[in-house]
Design a protein around this nucleic acid. Structure first.
Lengths: 244, 244
DNA sequence: GGATACAAGCTGGCATGCAAGATGCACGCA
DNA sequence: TGCGTGCATCTTGCATGCCAGCTTGTATCC
C-alpha cells in the first residue's frame, strides 16, 4: 500500500494546514479524520471501523488506530470493545460548559494582564482590531481565525502556559460549532466592535470593565451559537453528504 | 509471551488501584509506567526504549506504544523519532502554573457554588473535614487523597463538568509533587484547619471570604512544595534506585 | 592525540497476521 | 407472526516482521 501524500486534499482544519509533509502517518490520519469530523463527512452517531478509515486513506490500521485513540481521548470519538468506533454526538450542555470555562480562563488572564507592568503582545491585537472599517476582514473563515487568535493571545499574554494550553484545547474543541457564529456580516461587525471596546479598556488597565465586556461578549457568542445550531447543523448535514 | 497479571505488584497510583483486571493491556501498561514515574523508578531525564518496557512487563510493543504515546500526550514523556523515549524533567515553573490554574478554577467554582440555591455535595465535605481532632486522618497518603477529594469536590459541585475534568487533569499532573507536601503532621494539621475555615465560609455563602482563604491555602501549598522539593526529590531519587 | 568517517546495532513507525469477542442475520420453533 | 438460537462475518486488541534512520562505538587518518 502506498501513501500518496501528493494527492492529499487541501487541509481544511487550521491545524492541519501546516502539516504539508507530516513525518508521521498517524499525525496525518489524525488531521484528516478530524477534518472529516469538522466538515461533517463523519456525522455524530455514525459508526465506522478502523478498516474503513485505513482503506479510505490508503494506510494500514496501525497509524489509524493511534489517530483514532487520540481523537477518542480528545473527546471526539467513542470506541466500543470489539464493535467499532462511533462519532460522539453533540451535547450542547457540553459546549455551554466549555464556553463557561473560556470565560473563567480569559477573565483570569485579563486580571493578571492588567497587573503586569508591560502588557505584552497587545500591540499585535491593537493592529488587528483597532482598525478603520475598510481594513476589517469580512471572510467568515478568516474572521473566525482572527477571533480565535484574539482570545488566545489574551491568555497567552498573561504568561501562564498551562492556562494557555487548556484554553487552546477548549478553543479546538468548540471550533466545530463556534465558526457557525461567524457567517453573518453583522456578527463579524459586532465582534470587531466588542473586541475594540475590550481592548481599549485593557490598554487603560480597566480590568473590571474589560472583564464585564469580555464576559458578555463570550456569553453572547454562546447564546448565538446555541440559537443557530440546530437549524444550521441540519443544513450542514444535508450539504455534506457528498462524502466518498 | 505470557502476561502474568497475577504477579502484578500492588498498584501505587490511585488510578491504577481500581484496575484490578484491566481489559486492555495498554491500560495496564499505562498505569504501571505511570506508577513507575511517580515512584521514581523511571527518573526525569532517563531514556528507555519500547522494547525495554515490553520486555519488563512481558507484553509486545503494541500496547506499550499506545500507553507511551498516551503518557507523552499527558505530558510525562517525550518521544524522539527513532532514538527512544525520555522522561520529561521537572519544570518547576510548570508546576507553579498548574497551581495557579487550580486557583483560577477553584475560586471560580466557589463563586458559582455560593450562587446556587442548594449547595450540592457539601455535606460530604463537612463530614470529612469539620470533625473533632481525634477523628482526623494522620496517614500522609490518606490525608493527601482526602485533600485532593476536597478540592475536586468543590469544582464538581459547581456543576461544570468540563471545569471538573480539567481540574482532575491538573490534580493528576501535580500529584507527583503535591504529595510531598503531606508528609509532616503539622502540614496535615494546617490543612484541616484551613479546609475547615474555607468550608465554614462556604456554608455561610461568603464567597469572597472563602476565596481569599482558598487562594492563600493553595498558594501556601505551592510555596511549601517548592521549598521542600529539591531536597526531597534528591532523597527520593537515592531511595528509589532499587529498580529491577 | 584528536578528529573524522564508517559500520553495526538499536529504535520507533508502519504493515500484517492471528485470535477472541461482538454483531447481526437467517433459520427454526412456538 | 413473534421470539430465541446458532452460525458467519466483522471488529478491535495484541503479537510480530520489516524498514529507514539515528546513535554510538571503533578504526583509521592526519
Amino acid at each position: 500500500m502506498n501513501n500518496d501524500y501528493a494527492g492529499n486534499r487541501p487541509a481544511a482544519s487550521q491545524e492541519a494546514a501546516q502539516a504539508v509533509l507530516p513525518q508521521r502517518l498517524a499525525d496525518s490520519v489524525h488531521a484528516r479524520v478530524k477534518s472529516d469530523l469538522f466538515e461533517f463527512r463523519l456525522m455524530p452517531g455514525e459508526r465506522f471501523s478502523e478498516n474503513d478509515i485505513a482503506a479510505r486513506l490508503g494506510v494500514s490500521r496501525t497509524p489509524v488506530r493511534e489517530a483514532l485513540h487520540r481523537l477518542a481521548q480528545e473527546g471526539y470519538l467513542d470506541v466500543a470493545n470489539r464493535s467499532g468506533w462511533t462519532v460522539r454526538g453533540f451535547d450542547f450542555e457540553h459546549f455551554e460548559n466549555l464556553y463557561d470555562l473560556r470565560v473563567v480562563l480569559e477573565t483570569a488572564a485579563v486580571k493578571r494582564l492588567c497587573e503586569q507592568v508591560p502588557m505584552h503582545a497587545l500591540e499585535e491585537l491593537r493592529e488587528a482590531w483597532l482598525v478603520p472599517q475598510e481594513a476589517r476582514l469580512d471572510d467568515p473563515a478568516l474572521a473566525g481565525a482572527l477571533d480565535e487568535r484574539f482570545h488566545a493571545t489574551l491568555v497567552q499574554a498573561s504568561g501562564n502556559t498551562e492556562m494557555a494550553r487548556v484554553h487552546h484545547d477548549v478553543t479546538e474543541r468548540i471550533r466545530i460549532i463556534r465558526r457557525l457564529d461567524f457567517t453573518s456580516p453583522e456578527r463579524i461587525h459586532a465582534t470587531y466592535a466588542e473586541h475594540g471596546q475590550i481592548l481599549r479598556a485593557l490598554l487603560r488597565r480597566k480590568a473590571d470593565a474589560a472583564n464585564l465586556m469580555l464576559r458578555s461578549h463570550i456569553e453572547t457568542s454562546r447564546a448565538e451559537v446555541r440559537k443557530i445550531t440546530l437549524h444550521r447543523l441540519h443544513s450542514l448535514r444535508l450539504h455534506a453528504s457528498n462524502r466518498a
